[in-house]
Design a protein around this nucleic acid. Structure first.
Lengths: 205, 205
DNA sequence: TGCAAAGTTAAACACTTGTTTAAATTAATT
DNA sequence: AATTAATTTAAACAAGTGTTTAACTTTGCA
């Protein structure tokens, strides 16, 4: 993918995250990217295909590919879970615009192509988590009475809702003047500790 | 509010939850409600004001008004927390369309009037939770090292993400032929048990 | 240098959007 | 029954939508 296409995608991401897909017009996106309106169709074919390209482009980063430690038995299942949690939190916090777009897409928009992509991403991430959980149960490290679906929903639900409620947190604790980078760091760390406790509760014997 | 206005609001809720506010046209809503296009403006003034009316109408139900047991010292803080959890889960599961609209509104749309309403709702619910937590700490029933914000985010994040991922759950467990009412009941119950365990972990000594 | 391919542009396209209008119908009040 | 008010309607409005067009400029290559 050319630099120009990537530049357009990144600007489109900002506009779509701020306004939502439907309210973000192709003219808005073109203006934000500093290109002529017709270039969107020229490069991507259509607005919907631009959205699809954005999902494909970012999903690469958002997928929790845990293959490298899947069969590594020198790392305990608990440590693997920890690595997955850490990776997920990091990715969401580093891609907050994209996280919002994905949330909105799941909640309201239902275009077949994007839904299929999201389903694939969700399934892959769920399986990464599930594999580790099953390994832990087999090796007798983990409780076997916890449904992986609820662990998965807890991880994704909590992290994403912390992003949604970030402004609420800032207002409530009067952190308006604190550097946003600092707030993200602090929140990400606290989120990790929080989720870690929950996973310990449900998994460790 | 007249029956007709309420009828329009309820139909609008379905359409907006399915398509999102921006993609749901006034014509879509009018058709779903079986009324003439101009009636929307006649009754509500504008599309945006219809949205505001919908939020006001439903927020009545969604607010967790815990005043009746706030000062009741015959009920333990743990039981109060349990009642609040139960009430929240019930309301989200019984108003899934509205829950989706609220989520989308928080994530992408940012109309001042609706944002202020949502902020108020969030603040009220947060305070209901926080009051009980503080009472529990004061009475030496609860740990005092847990931030209420993370408890709040956990409750709302997990429940709402279970709604978002309901179809994923159905597909994954091949429950396509099961009555949706049954699935909701089952999921709500499991969600309650799940959240209950988490709150116990973070609160009880 | 010449020329085909790629890139860029402003203008136009058909269509949908939220809202308003003015006329017609129904309901309520005297 | 007469008259005023409330409701409902189809049609029209201007503005904004995604996409296409055809002319123009730049680029890459023989």
């Amino acid at each position: 993918m050319s630099d120009k296409k990537i530049h357009i995608l990144k600007e489109a991401e900002k506009v779509i995250a701020a306004k939502g897909y439907d309210a973000a017009s192709v003219r808005d996106i073109a203006e934000a990217a500093g290109v002529n309106l017709a270039m969107i169709s020229y490069y991507f074919g259509s607005k919907e295909k631009l959205m699809e390209a954005l999902l494909r482009y970012r999903m690469e980063f958002m997928a929790l590919k845990m293959e490298h430690l899947k069969k590594d038995s020198s790392i305990s299942p608990a440590e693997k879970i920890q690595a997955l949690m850490q990776a997920y939190i990091e990715r969401i916090f580093n891609n907050q615009d994209f996280a919002k777009i994905i949330m909105a897409e799941q909640v309201i928009r239902k275009h077949p192509a994007t839904l299929a992509l999201l389903r694939q991403l969700k399934l892959n991430n769920y399986k990464s988590l599930n594999d580790i959980v099953e390994e832990g149960i087999k090796k007798n490290f983990f409780k076997k009475d916890t449904e992986a679906f609820f662990l998965f929903t807890t991880l994704t639900g909590v992290v994403n809702h912390i992003i949604i409620n970030k402004q609420f947190y800032i207002d409530f604790h009067q952190l308006e003047n604190v550097n946003e980078e600092k707030i993200n760091e602090m929140l990400a760390q606290k989120t990790f500790i929080h989720i870690h406790k929950i996973f310990k509760l449900f998994l460790e014997k």
